[in-house]
């Protein structure tokens, strides 16, 4: 029965793909993916590959991270202010395995992500007694405490102290182009999975919990179980992003991987793009990374977070749906005009 269904879906897939590409959103997504794939082959210039392309890689890592936050907060309505927990834990596990146990980066990234899922389970269970804003503070408290544990001098033998781990081997590849392609694959797979999950029956259940938990409970949904699932799924993608980030930087340290700033970045990127629009977090991440890059180039590095906090306040205050939806509507109008519809 199930096998037939799957076979049917596989058979229908090419026609589905064709019709999807013809729609506005599908065409735009495909255009973005193709241009991202083509990008590294545009130039062999050292400056281009080692500086500019690396910024794209960073933006892609953070878009996975922001999308995972959006899955938890936008889709299932569980506000998390401590997403850096999963990000940092996965990064630490990955760095430890590569540097001390000589694991290949591939396996280390996956084990790191699984470690983050485990943390999602541990943190999800006590935190799910909290609702709404209290969950936000609970997760924030968790991440601050983890940060303090990792910074603690007396535990530095076990948790590496404030220095963290740094090793030249913690990287996916020497070649930035190869690194870029691998991270791009990670990003595409993560986004497809998250978007499909949010469209599936599971995603509908999560949305019903977000909109009205009592009614969801009354209609026979085990809300606690699904909230834990949402936590774990979100932690998986945040963990992938965190492990990739550790390999990208080549080192991990408490403030860089656990700091409240990291959680803040996820919140900022996702709400900049617009909550519940998973694609928006990619837009937010790219916007964010390149604004940061240009500020650093302009020598105003110290003002980066100040400006981003201002942007967050303005966006949340004046535009409930972020910047993705308005931009998409404008482009769609232009598109229709060009096609003469």
């Amino acid at each position: 029965m199930l096998k037939n269904e799957i076979e049917e879906k596989v058979k229908q897939f090419p026609t589905y793909l064709k019709s999807w590409v013809k729609t506005f959103l599908g065409g735009l997504t495909l255009f973005c993916i193709i241009s991202l794939i083509a990008l590294p082959f545009l130039s062999q210039n050292q400056n281009f590959t080692h500086v500019f392309l690396r910024q794209f890689t960073l933006a892609m890592i953070f878009s996975i991270f922001a999308a995972s936050w959006d899955l938890l907060t936008g889709i299932s309505g569980q506000i998390s202010f401590g997403h850096a927990i999963f990000f940092g834990i996965a990064g630490y596990i990955c760095a430890y395995l590569i540097s001390y146990q000589n694991f290949p980066p591939w396996i280390a990234i996956f084990i790191g992500a699984i470690g983050a899922v485990f943390f999602g389970l541990i943190i999800g269970i006590p935190c799910l007694r909290l609702r709404g804003p209290y969950l936000a503070l609970g997760t924030l408290a968790f991440s601050l405490v983890l940060l303090k544990l990792f910074l603690m001098g007396s535990l530095s033998d076990v948790l590496f102290g404030s220095e963290g781990i740094s090793d030249y081997r913690i990287q996916i590849s020497d070649n930035p182009v190869v690194e870029y392609i691998i991270i791009l694959m990670f990003m595409i797979v993560s986004f497809i999975t998250i978007i499909q999950v949010s469209k599936s029956k599971f995603g509908t259940i999560l949305k019903s919990i977000r909109d009205d938990e009592v009614s969801a409970d009354a209609s026979g949904i085990n809300t606690t179980r699904f909230k834990v699932y949402a936590f774990m799924l979100s932690a998986l993608f945040a963990g992938i992003a965190g492990a990739c980030y550790a390999t990208y930087v080549g080192a991990v340290n408490p403030t860089g991987n656990f700091g409240a700033t990291i959680s803040f970045y996820a919140i900022l990127m996702a709400s900049l793009g617009g909550l519940t629009t998973i694609r928006g977090s990619a837009l937010g991440a790219f916007f964010f990374i390149f604004l940061e890059y240009s500020l650093i180039v302009a020598g105003a590095e110290i003002y980066v977070n100040l400006i981003f906090a201002l942007i967050l306040i303005v966006v949340v205050r004046f535009s409930e749906h972020g910047i993705l939806k308005p931009i998409l509507e404008r482009i769609k109008d232009l598109w229709d005009l060009l096609l003469g519809r």
Binding site: I79, F81, P133, I267, L275, A309, L312, I313, V316
Partner: peptide
């Protein structure tokens, strides 16, 4: 609720 939490956090 999400809006208030986000904006005061900001």
């Amino acid at each position: 609720h999400v809006g208030v939490v986000l904006i005061t956090f900001g």
